[in-house]
Design a protein around this nucleic acid. Structure first.
Lengths: 213, 213
DNA sequence: GAGCACGCTAAGCGAGCGCTCACCTTCGGC
DNA sequence: GCCGAAGGTGAGCGCTCGCTTAGCGTGCTC
């Protein structure tokens, strides 16, 4: 929730839907800790400490440590899905919508890298029920991107041999940004978003010459 | 070291450089356990149990649990680097060498997903010294791929705006295969390798019409 | 065939884990 | 001004963790 995240395209009012205030502070602390050290290497004492509370306070708002991860993961996936839906359902050609989808999705992963890391890489730490729920959200994410690519391919705007495989690769490329992106590195989230949108248009064989912007 | 990994393009004699036999069995058990549950969620008792030994046996061959991860990571990165070097330094055009590099690199990540997962995703679990050593290997990996792309761009074979950014994206795409690839899924490592080689050629704007194979 | 290095085990240590419990504040309603 | 609910704390329980230590069997050496 620090300034870096907000400046870099993150939500200006992140986790606003989490109430009361103490529960939100704990959740934000958990996001930071999970992103830094991973779920299993994070202790409940660490989370409570970051939120300025005693270890016991965590259990007033959350039943277990896993429930914290579950809540983070669900809210994060819903946010990711919303970003892609907005891009997929706006006006414009498949090329424009794919550009919008990739650049905004990448901006979210780069700018909110802390959150995105937890959302994308701690899925296996959830129990079976929670994981199944999150996997359903991921299928919706996949469907949004696949929809754009299918439409572009059907209209002749794109040139794609394997729609499912290409969709997988596009999402994979975007998601992996959360692994390598460095806030102190040479690229801003906006730059990476623009670069990746161009690369993805090339991958789908979009007709417009994105090669020479 | 199971059949699936060997059939799918993995090393037929994996971890042969690790001796004595008991040390290799422990290391193979650790790879499996780390890949399944992650480093921090894996106990030394679990590793020893998989290798058919008592927990104490681990400490005869390795000083700590982290030394196991360090050894796995270094051997894995050396193997990955060797794969890319072989492709980068063979005869042929930049297009041919990039195709070779991507398809073999992807085959390794898909076929040896167990190993690749540990190698690519447990880097943060290492201590500062070990992590620095591994990061040096990763820079060599990056340099091999960047070299091919630079040569293709210089000769006019490729059309690339941002060589460093494109290199990053290509490697990112390949590495993320270890996250999503499923041995029981619909695609073989060879199919993913071929698909990804085609997508990467599109990303670098290779002149040859890979779009219509 | 005695001596011994080596590989391994059974038992367990100190520490830190997730989580609980008894109790303490604060504060709005009447 | 009293009261109960809501939200917090300090202490600590039971457990499992990474790792150690004392001792045992086995096979090689001479």
């Amino acid at each position: 929730m620090s300034t870096a995240e907000e400046m870099a395209g993150g939500d200006p009012q992140p986790w606003a839907e989490v109430t009361p205030d103490a529960a939100r502070r704990l959740l934000v602390a958990a996001v930071e800790a999970f992103a830094e050290r991973g779920y299993h290497a994070t202790t409940t004492r660490d989370i409570a400490g970051r939120a300025g509370m005693s270890p016991a306070a965590l259990y007033i708002h959350y039943k277990t440590k896993e429930e914290l991860l579950h809540r983070i993961s669900r809210i994060g996936h819903e946010k990711a899905l919303e970003i892609l839906r907005t891009a997929a359902r706006r006006e414009g050609s498949a090329t424009e919508r794919l550009t919008d989808a990739v650049s905004s999705f990448v901006r979210w992963h780069a700018g909110g890298r802390t959150t995105a890391r937890v959302v994308q890489y701690e899925l296996d730490s959830l129990g079976p029920d929670a994981r199944a729920e999150i996997l359903a959200l991921r299928r919706l994410v996949d469907a949004e991107v696949r929809g754009i690519i299918e439409e572009g391919a059907a209209s002749g705007e794109f040139d794609v041999l394997d729609v499912r495989g290409t969709t997988l690769a596009v999402l994979s490329l975007c998601i992996d940004v959360a692994r390598w992106f460095n806030v102190d590195g040479p690229r801003t989230p906006e730059e990476v978003g623009a670069l990746y949108a161009d690369l993805v248009l090339r991958m789908v064989g979009a007709k417009s010459g994105a090669a020479q912007k």
